[in-house]
């Protein structure tokens, strides 16, 4: 999270709303440990990463749907075990659980 602070502070100065996705749990092979974080602004700017680049695209979509109120803060799971595996699975075969919420605390 520390790495994201400069971007987050710049965005906040510009009055942007921000969603933050954090890795909370991994099963099997996962590229980033719990605590790895990624921030997404309303205008779609991104800082940080939560995997080796496998799921970041899908996370942006989830983050934007939280910022526009379509979904509530929640745990989102990516991995071979879910139906969308081919769309946004991890190439390493692991499963990651992310908690995504607006930075409003």
């Amino acid at each position: 999270m520390k790495d994201l602070l400069p971007d987050i502070e710049r965005w906040r100065r510009d009055g942007e709303r921000i969603a933050v996705a954090r890795v909370v749990d991994i099963e099997g092979s996962g590229p980033r440990l719990p605590g790895a974080a990624m921030a997404v602004t309303e205008s779609g700017e991104v800082a940080g990463s939560v995997s080796g680049g496998c799921v970041e695209g899908a996370v942006v979509g989830e983050a934007l749907s939280i910022l526009d109120g379509t979904t509530k803060p929640r745990v989102v799971t990516f991995g071979y075990s879910d139906d969308e595996a081919f769309a946004v699975g991890l190439t390493c075969g692991g499963t990651i659980h992310l908690f995504i919420e607006e930075l409003a605390w």
Binding site: E9, R17, I18, L103
Partner: peptide, 15 residues
């Protein structure tokens, strides 16, 4: 675009 919320806890955490 709605206004960005205050983030008192985050500000302390960032510090």
């Amino acid at each position: 675009m709605t206004t960005a919320p205050d983030t008192p806890l985050f500000d302390r955490y960032a510090e």
